[in-house]
Design a protein around this nucleic acid. Structure first.
Lengths: 245, 245
DNA sequence: CAGTGGTCTAGACCACTTC
DNA sequence: AAGTGGTCTAGACCACTGC
């Protein structure tokens, strides 16, 4: 009887289980972005494992950018408010290399019926609507980004243009404090396209000019997609930077 | 006497020193790509540290993709020959999602005097020449990539067109076996541009069509830059994919 | 079965931060 | 000085591979 017998319960190491517990605490909002989580010794006591096992779980969450360790101080829930995390997902940099602050210019913010592709990507129920935000970003007076953003109406109820305009800083920090939604990771698909009339006018270019089309899907805890962006970059004096490891 | 006294030798943990030793063995070619390195116990004995310390050093090299761990078998030097590592740096995927094998079409391979920017990026001495390779890659008969590649003549001496043409498979695997050069990481800068006459004809497009310009610099061990690419992608039916963490 | 990497523990000590 | 994360050790045992 050749007894191959399926890999049983596939075996999950203890630290993976601890990691899952920590993740669900994060997802449940037990600890808020920017706050410290309990010390390793406390967690070890709570879960009745050794400090080393907690450590390995926390290590993985830290390399996934969900937690941030600070020696001597503690371990903190990652936040888009912290310095140097601003624009964490923005890969567009000036050719010159000098970092220039981007200026926001919100054009509109309305509840709309989602296109079928957006609805599908956000995994919305039928009939659920979305909030669409249009904006332009400028560097030193020159418009370089024109983008449309779609958010599930449910999670972002109360989002209005005036609400947005009174916020200064990255959108992701805004989502975090105003809508209790922390973005964990994102995926982008990039193409080169010819500018249509709308994009061209927002970016002060001739129609037909080459633009970088960047479609981004962002996820919160639990791999839940909660934001779609469709951005047009003018890469005349900027470029998209990527590191391959 | 307020004794702030500079952070002394800045403190380097043991495992970092071990990691540096392993790195220099890799760089010196003591172990070749695809080969196993000594077991953790052997390394621990050699360096006179505990297994756990070796482990942490190897862990870091593994997450940097310099080593590959295989439970029950050993730890191996990463190689571009291994399955699923083919095209490790290629982020271009068909919109349809179905993976299609790329077909190579080498146009030329000549020793040339480098442009000042290439010479600078490759950190060449004055007078050093480079090898320039031009190629087109096709998927299902349609040309989708036209690129120029520059390599330092010194390291890649003997590279010829016929040598290239007789190779099937990724270039990086070719570099590895024929020129003892393993690529460790790369950086890319991306723009949208209008096709010039040359690119347009190679990609069977109208001049002025939007193209993705991807400039890549690749590095071997020790952060040494050894390849520059300037690629033009036709993204009509493909896109560049990127994950942000 | 022996050898490899992978997990887990318990305890000691170090480096950094704060009071 | 107390508390945090960070390093290092020694040893036990588990899971996977190949002979």
């Amino acid at each position: 009887m050749p007894q191959t017998l399926a890999p049983a319960a596939t075996f999950s190491p203890l630290y993976q289980q601890i990691k899952a517990l920590l993740l669900s605490s994060l997802q449940a909002g037990e600890w808020q972005p920017g706050d410290p989580i309990p010390s390793e010794m406390e967690l070890a006591a709570r879960f009745e494992v050794s400090q080393g096992t907690v450590r390995k779980a926390v290590d993985e969450l830290a390399t996934e950018n969900l937690l941030v360790r600070r020696q001597g101080k503690g371990t903190f829930v990652a936040s888009h408010h912290s310095e140097a995390w601003q624009y964490r997902f923005l890969r567009l940099v000036p050719d010159s290399g000098e970092k220039v602050p981007l200026k926001n210019q919100f054009l509109s913010c309305n509840a709309v019926k989602p296109s079928s592709s957006v609805s599908h990507l956000l995994r919305l129920g039928s009939g659920e609507s979305v909030i669409q935000i249009d904006r332009v970003q400028t560097a030193l007076g020159k418009a370089i980004v024109y983008e449309q953003i779609w958010l599930p109406q449910k999670r972002f109820a109360g989002m209005t243009l005036s609400f947005l305009v009174n916020w200064s800083g990255p959108l992701y920090a805004f989502y975090e404090t105003k809508f209790a939604t922390h973005m964990v990771r994102a995926e982008e698909k990039i193409k080169a396209i010819a500018a249509d009339a709308v994009s061209a006018s927002h970016l002060q270019l001739a129609p037909g000019s080459p633009l970088l089309l960047v479609e981004r899907m962002s996820f919160t805890y639990g791999n839940k997609p909660v934001e779609i962006r469709r951005a047009h970059y003018d890469t005349t004096e900027q470029h998209y930077e990527n590191k391959l490891n």
